[in-house]
Computed example of a mutant assay.
Amino acid sequence: MSGTHWLALFGLILASWASLYAMSIPAEMRAMEQIYGRDFWVELCAITPDGAGYIRMVLMWSLMSAAMMAPTVLPALATYDDLSHVSGDAKFGKLVAGYMAVWVGFSVVAAGFQMILFQAGLIGVFGDSLSAGLSGGLLILAGLYQFSTMKEACLSKCRQPMTFFMQHFDEGPWRNGLRLGLVCLGCCWALMLLAFVGGVMSVAFMGLATVIMVVEKLPDLGRHVTKPLGAALLMAGAWVLVTGI
């Protein structure tokens, strides 16, 4: 089987990370928001949480999703590749397209959520939370979700891609990609929303979150990560709410 589809996928991941790095806002520029005020940065920044910048925000969230989520699903994609008995470049492409379609949908919603939060004064122009209540609430939400049956059900499918695909293989690559994307979304949506705590344009946060989500989906190690991570998020959320930091 040709490896062209894998080269294209890794190219997409690298291009997404490179684009996010180019779009990221250095810490010193973030600090200057306190000096000049956010109106100055709304006019200056390329990505602005207003009507004119909404499409750019959707693009930014889509890049985040491709960069962060594609590495977490590589074992599942490899499993599907192994199950394909004929040359799979086209099928593989449809699988990835279906998967990313789900995350583009998430990006549309997340960009709208970002706009609402900005207009309410809860986040800054760089997507950073300005509210201890928002930060603590998102951390507690993510922590609670780590213990939910929905999270566990979705993770069990991600950790057993062979079983998952064998159940739905006859539906074709596009629908399998959609199913895989929905399962992945069920695993990771709450952790992705923590971007508003760590900084939407923070490459450091994105890198750390990606590593956590990759490890969490591993069949053996991941089982020992989910609930301790949930407890840590709950404690962090409570700390933020109590201290107001």
Rank of each mutant, 00 (worst) to 15 (best):
M1P: 05
L7V: 14
L9K: 11
L9S: 08
F10V: 08
F10R: 02
I13K: 06
I13F: 06
L14F: 13
A15F: 13
A15K: 14
S16D: 02
M23A: 12
M23H: 00
S24K: 10
S24L: 10
A27E: 12
E28M: 15
M29T: 10
R30H: 11
R30M: 13
A31T: 11
E33S: 12
Q34T: 13
F40I: 05
C45D: 06
G51F: 05
G53T: 01
I55N: 07
R56W: 11
M57V: 03
M64D: 10
S65I: 03
A66G: 07
T72P: 02
T72E: 04
A76H: 00
L77M: 15
T79L: 01
Y80S: 05
L83K: 10
H85M: 14
V86E: 13
G88Q: 14
K91L: 11
F92N: 02
L95Y: 05
M100G: 01
V104C: 09
V104R: 07
V108L: 11
V108K: 03
V108Y: 03
V109H: 01
A110S: 11
G112L: 14
Q114D: 09
M115P: 00
I116S: 14
F118H: 13
Q119F: 09
A120G: 04
A120D: 03
L122F: 01
G124P: 02
V125T: 12
G127Q: 08
D128Y: 07
S129D: 05
S129E: 03
A132Y: 03
L134N: 06
L138Q: 13
L138M: 14
G143K: 12
L144M: 15
S148Y: 04
K151M: 09
A153E: 08
C154V: 00
K157Y: 01
Q160I: 04
P161S: 06
T163A: 15
T163G: 10
F169Y: 15
E171S: 15
W174M: 15
R175D: 04
N176I: 10
R179F: 11
L180M: 14
C184I: 07
C187V: 04
L191K: 05
L191E: 00
L194K: 09
F196C: 04
V197P: 04
G199H: 09
G199A: 08
V200C: 02
F205Q: 08
M206V: 02
L208W: 12
T210M: 00
M213F: 08
V215C: 15
L218W: 06
L221K: 13
T226E: 14
K227I: 07
L229Y: 08
L229I: 11
L229G: 01
A232I: 14
L234V: 00
M235R: 12
M235P: 00
A236N: 09
A238S: 12
V242A: 07
T243G: 08
T243E: 12
